[in-house]
Design a protein around this nucleic acid. Structure first.
Length: 415
DNA sequence: CTTGCCGGGCG
DNA sequence: CGCCCGGCAAG
């Protein structure tokens, strides 16, 4: 197997371990799913959040498009959904589902809760269970919050923060809370919302949907498939060192791999501890995927990775060696070692060593006829004495005794 | 987490 | 057989 080395081209800046994607998603969705804080209002009119808004008659409030309200229509009280609230003349356009028609009412004639004395039609009782509107609204808010947090990456759990910027591109303030339209789904799809939100929604809803769909699929179709990743997915770690791409199953192994193979020769003061962290990434393998089926000679399927490096520019295309096992791996979090493995390292030093060690690439070799021998109890007791590794440090590996270098029982510092 | 080293692969 | 390293287990 040929090892192509591109050791001279080395990336510079180190980025964080995780992709900023989540943060972006969160940012874009944090605004407007539900208007708890009353932000987004353009002229100081308080926004109804549903909390404590159960009184009849609505004054000096702002109604969300999609918000459920009650009006008298045809001699009866009807539940409807706000389509527009023009609070300049305080008129509210309301779509009444029952009548399939739209009505306009003065704000004063709009109720946030049913008056209660009238017998509700069946459909209404379905829509509005026997709870106070407050609690219903609270539930909705909670639901919205859940949605919000769902659409956010796990990274940030920040509360919906106020957004000083004027909302809604240009149109009147009515459009400002449009993003609610998606959420107040209890009311049919009402008239198309203002221009901006659909875009925003298109941006932020897919992740949510995907998540839900996935869960649904799992619930509905998967065999007793455990939902926990732990059960269905194997975790492994992939070395991000240029031309390495080694995949190991344990952090320990990976760290050591990086330390001994890649960081080992760096001058000691310059190498900061824990730097290994930046050179591997966590990946998952579907348990369903048969790992390297025996007999299939081809190490074909290139590791299947989902996320791309956070850095936009095309980082050196150096094909990470395909020493990866022939199973499907998915990168979970991304480090960008590309950033800077060699911040202060003089590039020329130790490169041959790097070369000679990169891309070990072992064939799968599955023969493994031998059963996993029960670990013979004769494992040597851990010695108390300091061993070469401790004494000389990784930096001076060349001073270790051979056994230590070979990871065998130390011969120099016997117990 | 770090460390020591067994088991096993490779040339 | 020399060399190397993944993974395990102890600490």
């Amino acid at each position: 197997m040929e090892k192509v080395l591109t050791a001279t081209v080395l990336p510079r800046s180190r980025l964080g371990k995780r992709s900023p994607l989540g943060a972006l998603v969160c940012n874009s969705s944090a605004e407007g799913l539900v208007d708890i804080g009353g932000h987004g209002d353009t002229d100081g009119v308080p926004v109804i959040s549903g909390i404590g808004a159960g009184v009849h008659g609505v004054h000096r409030v702002k109604l969300h498009p999609g918000q459920r309200v009650y009006v008298h229509c045809g001699g009866q009280e009807r539940a409807g959904a706000v389509e527009q609230h023009n609070h300049v003349d305080n008129e509210v356009s309301i779509f009444i589902q029952q009548l399939n028609q739209r009505v306009h009412r003065k704000l004063e004639d709009v109720w946030l809760s049913p008056s209660g004395v009238l017998a509700h039609p069946v459909s209404l009782s379905i829509d509005v269970p026997k709870r106070s509107v407050e609690s219903a609204d609270m539930d909705e808010i909670m639901a919205a919050m859940v949605l919000t947090s769902l659409s956010c990456s796990p990274m940030i759990q920040s509360p919906v923060h106020g957004e000083p910027a004027p909302v809604s591109n240009g149109t009147d303030s009515t459009g400002s809370e449009m993003s609610d339209g998606g959420y107040w789904s209890c009311d049919h799809g009402n008239s198309s919302p203002a221009p901006s939100p659909p875009d925003a929604e298109a941006d932020r809803t897919p992740p949510v949907d995907d998540g839900l769909d996935m869960e649904m699929d799992q619930v509905l179709f998967d065999e007793p498939a455990p939902r926990k990743r732990k059960n269905s997915v194997k975790v492994a770690y992939r070395c991000l060192w240029p031309n390495c791409g080694k995949i190991l199953t344990t952090i320990v192994g990976m760290k050591r791999h990086i330390r001994t193979l890649h960081l080992g020769r760096q001058s000691e003061q310059e190498r900061c501890q824990r730097e290994e962290d930046f050179y591997y990434t966590e990946i998952y393998q579907d348990a369903e995927q048969p790992a390297a089926p025996a007999g299939s000679g081809s190490p074909s399927s290139p590791s299947h990775q989902r996320s791309s490096p956070p850095t936009p520019e095309p980082l050196q295309p150096s094909p990470l060696s395909q020493s990866a096992p022939s199973s499907i791996w998915q990168v979970h979090s991304e480090h960008s070692y590309q950033a800077a493995p060699f911040r202060r390292r003089s590039v020329s030093v130790g490169e041959q060593w790097l070369q000679s060690h990169s891309a070990p690439s072992r064939p799968p070799h599955l023969a493994s006829v031998s059963p996993p021998r029960s670990h013979c109890a004769s494992r040597r007791v851990r010695g108390e004495a300091k061993k070469c590794r401790k004494v000389y440090g990784i930096e001076h590996r060349d001073q270790w005794c051979t056994a230590c270098r070979w990871k065998k029982a130390c011969q120099r510092f016997l117990d």
